[in-house]
Design a protein around this nucleic acid. Structure first.
Lengths: 349, 349
DNA sequence: GTGAAAGCGCTAACAC
DNA sequence: GTGTTAGCGCTTTCAC
């Protein structure tokens, strides 16, 4: 006893009910060409009577748009990207589009395959946070992509695509300078994955701040809390047992935090720290963590708006026209207590 | 000087190059019917020569599968759901499917529209965490859905769909009992959104544990840290200044945590607590938070596997066949220190 | 301004 | 086994 579902009404049903031809229905649907008042009214009536909505699959087969945009990111569950995705989805919704998010899990091959998949599904546009800063295979594939692409957070350096990013350099520099202003002469930069564009920028920002202050940059790449522990231990064994740490991202901050606890060190008395990227419980820690905050929603939203803008104007632009500089969003240094500032927000520098 | 892209090779190109008919190519592509060795070989050769891959859009127009599954959740950026989505995406990938995730932002209307959208795109299946425990409009729409649907975390109570959930009841009961075993006679349950199925279950579990111990359940719905503060203040003003709190989810825990800090209370000395759902920095707090942990990946993965299983067997089952009980995953009580246990893992009860 | 008709790339009868 | 053919639901010339 299988249930039988009435087939969804199709365009021709609407045409018949409205007493017009298929083409006319299609015209009022897409609204580009001029249709007579009368026909327009009757078609709209028929559409609402039947509860008709166009089958997007059929529409896209004919070479029109699929109503789907793609988003290629390293990870879906990462807070940064899921927040971006949420912002992108809201914009997509506004433009009657659906969003397919795919995660590469930092595997260039997976990333490449995902791109192929999205292309086969005729996506209208793509937002890309590549797992790789340089991925030849991906570059080549990207050259054959006929739909607009917008880079997010991690611009592909040589691909000719517009992108939107945070001011990683400036944010890191400000954080480092803040730490320096507290009188530290040892400010470590603990980081992971220095091959990623945003991290690179932060390292540069840190380095410039140190150089400007006439201080020696102290860069440490870590991969675990143990690494961070080593790093802290080495620097605290000297006579000056008071150092500062700029953690270039959340994970580095977590490793540092764990190392500090393991070594029974006091924040900020012995180790002052600021980390890049705000996180949920930053101000519930003991002490609350000072951070560089990105406006993640803005990044996602802007990337999406830019993409839809390009999708609209696609035909009018040469696909290979040079794109401008990336859209940049400034970051904000949120002073809490881990940097050595007082709870009341005053800075003891 | 617009770049011209060579059109992607189509099925008929493959057929011509292989010297066979379209149908034969289609046959080897879908592999169901028997094709001669020779033809099979030549088609495969032609496919790889041309770098051909089938246009999924055209395929789905013909009523076959679209190669896309949908996922309807309240929020994309919520850690629980983004982690589920990641697990689902991995399974989808395994079955050569794409995943479209849509967020309702807790708006029933948005949820309904999202469902329509997904349906128009001919999704092959749907994973659903409804924003609503009872949503008549959604129910009705769901009855007309011809593709398999699997509920996740929040089963639709009256819709006849299989689902996978956590043992919220048991987890909450275990956490509450643990708190009781520490000798507290006042164990509050601080919660938000009691209308959601998982929260309901947790409240029931809490209540049963209290009843079993001959204690009075003390349920408090909060919407802010201030609410939680009020709640704590009221119970601490009595002579017994030692209470326990079971926070029914992360947000309730956060409110409670903030309230505790505002009131300058000590955890666990004055307020012992356990919260439902683990979170990133739970063990970096001071003191580390004891939690009930769900196996989120398992939930997502299993829901997806169940969905694909049903998609495979779709034709062989009556769409209206009664579905079995939900698949349930057990939770684990992670003892840290906020409940009053000692750092070494020993329980002082 | 509007309808008839030709496909978009693929699948699935249906003949052979 | 395999080729031929008729659509899937829509957009879009092209005549009228």
């Amino acid at each position: 006893m299988k249930k039988v579902f009435p087939p969804a009404p199709k365009l021709s049903d609407v045409a018949r009910l409205a007493g017009v031809g298929n083409a006319t229905v299609s015209r009022v649907l897409n609204g580009h060409v001029h249709v007579s008042e009368e026909a327009n009214r009757r078609v709209k009536q028929a559409i609402s009577d039947l509860g008709y909505s166009p089958n997007r699959i059929a529409r896209s087969l004919k070479g029109a748009t699929s109503g789907i945009i793609g988003m290629l990111v390293p990870s879906i569950s990462d807070m940064f990207f899921s927040q971006c995705a949420e912002a992108v989805e809201i914009v997509a919704r506004k433009y009657d589009s659906l969003l397919i998010v795919m995660a590469s899990h930092d595997d260039p091959l997976v990333e490449f395959e995902n791109l192929q998949q999205l292309l086969l599904h005729q996506i209208d546009g793509l937002i890309l946070s590549s797992a790789q800063s340089r991925n030849t295979k991906l570059y080549k594939a990207l050259r054959d992509v006929t739909v607009p692409v917008v880079g997010l957070d991690r611009p592909l350096q040589e691909a000719n695509i517009p992108s939107v990013i945070s001011e990683n350099f400036e944010g890191a520099k400000a954080a480092t300078s803040h730490l320096i202003s507290h009188g530290y002469d040892k400010v470590l930069c603990i980081h992971i994955k220095p091959e990623l564009y945003p991290i690179q920028e932060r390292l540069h920002g840190y380095t410039e701040a140190m150089n400007d202050a006439g201080l020696q940059p102290l860069l440490y790449k870590v991969e675990s809390a143990e690494d961070a522990e080593m790093c802290l231990k080495n620097h605290l064994s000297s006579t000056d047992s008071r150092i500062a740490v700029f953690a270039a991202n959340n994970l580095a901050a977590r490793f540092t935090w764990e190392a500090v606890r393991t070594l029974h060190l006091a924040i900020p008395r012995q180790v002052a720290m600021v980390c890049f990227d705000d996180f949920d419980l930053a101000d519930s820690l003991t002490p609350p963590m000072s951070v560089v905050q990105q406006t993640i929603d803005d990044l996602g939203r802007t990337a999406a708006e830019l993409l839809f803008h390009r999708m609209r104007n696609e035909s009018r632009e040469a696909a290979s026209a040079p794109v401008g500089d990336p859209v940049r969003f400034s970051t904000q240094l949120i002073i809490r207590e881990s940097c050595g500032c007082h709870p009341n927000g005053m800075c003891k520098s």
